[in-house]
């Protein structure tokens, strides 16, 4: 088992290196640099910048150095000082701009992951064990509905319902008085009050697909001879189902850990915009639009790295519950 973990950790190093290169290429990709953008906007406002001033700024930002030096500097600053560079648009260090949003993204991801497990596991097991029962048909119906509804539409519907019938203030993750407040118990409670809407919206589609996958996998497993062997020993049906087939049907749940982050970032940018969430999706979109390249590149780097870590965690868990994986 430990050999497996260490091997997987070593595999991670080249992956993360390639991710950092790709992220840096994103930073370098647009023609010109931020100075060109800056001069253009100054010119548009009627101002002028002296050549010396421009050169000075270039030196400060390190833009006069060759590409590979800039890459090394960027990586060195990240590793040694957790400094991801400067956001030109926000006029602040990149980490200050995105740190809290990244944390919120992770929180919402985990919440919706949890939500989809809590919904999908019991309903999937029930649907498989009581195939073609009324309950199975109901879950199947809602499963397909959940898969077919676009997230942003679901977001609008849930927001409308919550506002209209529950009188809740919707949108965002915090009430106004906590928006800027430092962390406190009240703020956590406030977060809990707000998080369930994005949690449901983001988690619905994955609940639905996990439910379908669980049902299909479990139906396959229930037909396997080892189930009959276990029953022939005298075990109670439910104990057999929970001990054997469910254990194997659990694999997709664990795999879902690895995919929840990219899903949330790529799939729910629109949801983030609609719900006005302080997550990374909307910010990344803006950074790309305004060529705020260090911000965009750092986002890519961190999200991709976190995804790699997510996949690593899910692989280790898979190996832990399924001996066939760790032995190969």
């Amino acid at each position: 088992m430990w050999a497996f973990v260490i091997r997987r950790l070593i595999y991670m190093i080249p992956t993360v290196f390639i991710i950092s290169l790709v992220s840096f290429i994103i930073i370098e990709l647009p023609p010109g640099d931020y100075m060109t953008t800056l001069m253009a906007s100054m010119a548009a406002e009627g101002g002028e910048m002296g050549q010396e001033e421009i050169e000075a700024l270039r030196r400060i930002y390190g833009l006069d150095q060759p590409v590979y030096v800039r890459y090394i500097n960027w990586m060195r600053n990240i590793i040694t000082r957790w400094d991801f560079g400067y956001s030109f648009e926000w006029r602040a260090p990149v980490w200050d701009v995105m740190g809290s949003r990244l944390a919120m993204t992770v929180v919402i991801s985990l919440a919706s992951l949890l939500f989809s497990w809590v919904i999908a596991l019991p309903t999937g097991i029930y649907s498989a064990v009581r195939q073609y029962s009324v309950g199975d048909y109901i879950f199947t119906f809602f499963g397909f509905l959940g898969l077919a509804t676009p997230n942003f539409l679901l977001a609008l519907v849930v927001m409308f319902l919550a506002h209209r019938y529950l009188g809740l203030s919707v949108g965002g993750l915090f009430s106004e008085q906590y928006q800027m407040a430092p962390w406190s118990l009240g703020k956590v409670v406030d977060l809990m009050k707000h998080i369930w809407i994005p949690m449901i919206i983001v988690g619905t589609a994955s609940s639905a697909s996990l439910l379908r996958i669980t049902r299909a996998n479990l139906l396959d497993e229930l037909r396997k001879p080892y189930v009959e062997t276990a029953r022939a020993k005298g075990l109670r049906m439910w104990r057999v189902v929970l001990k054997y087939p469910v254990r194997i049907a659990l694999n997709p749940f664990i795999s879902s850990i690895g995919f929840v982050l990219p899903q949330l970032v790529s799939g729910s940018v629109i949801v983030g915009v609609v719900l006005n969430l302080p997550t990374t999706g909307p910010l990344l979109l803006r950074a790309l639009q305004s060529q705020d390249m260090y911000l965009a590149g750092s986002f890519t780097l961190l999200l991709a790295t976190m995804t790699v870590i997510g996949v690593l965690i899910s692989d280790i868990l898979l190996a832990w519950i399924d001996p066939r994986i760790r032995y190969d």
Partner: peptide, 12 residues
């Protein structure tokens, strides 16, 4: 049972 491979749980 007939199939000694599939008649035992692979993960226990």
């Amino acid at each position: 049972f007939q199939e000694p491979m599939t008649s035992l749980s692979p993960v226990h």
